[in-house]
Design a protein around this nucleic acid. Sequence first.
DNA 1: TGACATGGCTAACATCGTTAGCCATAATGG
DNA 2: CCATTATGGCTAACGATGTTAGCCATGTCA
Lengths: 231, 231
Amino acid sequence: MMTTGTAAPPAPLLPGELDRPAAPPTRTKRVTEAVAAARRILEEEGPNALTMRRLADEMGIRAPSLYKHLSGKADLELLLIEDALFDAGEATHRALHDPGPHSPLLNLLVAYRAFAMTRPNLYRLATSGPLVRQSLPEGLEDWAGNPWFVVTGDSSLAQALWSLAHGMVILELDDRYPPGSDLDATWRAGAVAFERGAAVSERSVDEFVWSTVTRAPSSPQDPVAPRLSDG
Amino acid sequence: MMTTGTAAPPAPLLPGELDRPAAPPTRTKRVTEAVAAARRILEEEGPNALTMRRLADEMGIRAPSLYKHLSGKADLELLLIEDALFDAGEATHRALHDPGPHSPLLNLLVAYRAFAMTRPNLYRLATSGPLVRQSLPEGLEDWAGNPWFVVTGDSSLAQALWSLAHGMVILELDDRYPPGSDLDATWRAGAVAFERGAAVSERSVDEFVWSTVTRAPSSPQDPVAPRLSDG
DNA sequence: TGACATGGCTAACATCGTTAGCCATAATGG
DNA sequence: CCATTATGGCTAACGATGTTAGCCATGTCA
C-alpha cells in the first residue's frame, strides 16, 4: 500500500540516489476510498471488471455520483498509476538499502520482479499505453526510476536494464514465453549480461548509430485526457 | 505485407534456424480484405478507430454483416496478430541472412526495432495482453522467435535478449522514457551487454534461484475467447 | 426447377462511459 | 436564526460499442 506523505525512517541516501518526491496532490477521503476500491477490483477481478458502475457499487453509490469526485475513468486510472509508481519506487529504493543476499543489481531485479508479480494487473495498467507524463506529480517518475541509475551508474545502461526488467516482467505476466520455459534461467541470463556490462567502461564499443531506424510518420495512438483536479 | 504461403527464394538454413511454418489456415477472400482494411485503420487512425462499424464502413457493408465472415472482434484481432508474427518472423529471419553491417546480434536488434517502429499499433496489438497461444498456427510462434536463439545459441539468453528488445521497443512506442533520452544510446548499451554475455560460457555464475518470486494467487486477467473458424 | 448456401440488410439488446438535472442535507454567513 | 450556498447523492437518458435475431435477395447445383 501507498503511504502518502508519511515520512519513512530516514535512511541515508546512497551516492546518486534521489530523495522521495513531494507527496501527490491531496486526495479527498472519498477519492482515496475510490482508488482503494478500484485497486481491489482491478487486482481481484481483473481489468474488465473495473467499470464505473462496478466501482460505484463497491462504494455503495451509483455510477454518476462518482463524477462528483473524479473527472472520469481516465482520472481514476491516473491515480492508480500514481500509486503504482510510488509503490514501485518504494520497493526498488528499499532494495538498494536492504542487505540483500546478492549484488545490488540482482537485488534490484528480484525486487522489481516480485513487485510486479504481486500486483500484476496494477503493473500492467501502470506500464501499458502512452504515459500522461504532465499529469503526474513532479519528480515522481524520476524518483521511481532512480534506483536503476544508482545500480548501473550510467543513464543509458540504466534505461536498458529497466527495459530488460520490464520486458521480462510483462512477457511473464502475459504468458508470452513458450510454455515450459525456465523463467528463472531467463532472468539469470539477463542479470549476468548486465552484471558484466555494468562493470565495464561505457564506450568500449564501435560508434554504432541507429539513424536508419525511425518511427512511422504520425501514427495515431489513443488520445488521453489531461488530468482534472478533484471536483 | 504478408506473403501468405508464397515460397520465398529458398535461402539455405543457418545452423539452428527453423524453417518457415505452414501457411496459416486458409482465409476467404473477404476475410483477407477485412484483415487488410483493419490493418489500415489500425495503423492510420489508431486502435480506438478499429471498430466493427468502422471496419464494415471501410468495406462498404454494415457491421452485422461482418459476422458472416468473422466470429467477432477477437477473431479479427487474432488474424492481425498472426500477420504481425509472420511479418516479424520474416523481418528477423531476413536480418540473419542479409549481410548487415554489424554483428548478427546487432543486425537482429536493428531489424526488430525497425519492424516495430514502422507499424507501432500493430506491434502493440500483437504483443500486449495475454496471448491466445492455442489459436495460432502450429509452429508460428517458435519460428518467429527462432532468430533470437540462432543469434545467442542459448534459449535463456535468447529469451532475455528478446525481452530486452521488446522492453525497449514498447517503452519507446509508449513514450515511457524520460523526455530527451538518447534512445540510440540505450539500445547500444543493451546490445553491448548481450554482445559480451553471448560470447561467454553459459554458467560462469553462481547458482541463483528466484524461488522467492511468485505470482499473486489467481489474479484474473481478461478472458479471451478461443478462435472460431470462418463461418 | 427447387432446395439450399452465401452474404447482405434492419432492428434491437446489453454494457460502457458520461451528462443533465433534481433534491436532501450540511455548512456558512448576514 | 434564517437564508443561501456547497456537497454529494439520485434518476433518466444519450451515444458508442460489440453482438444477436431474423429477414431476404442472389447464386449454385442436384
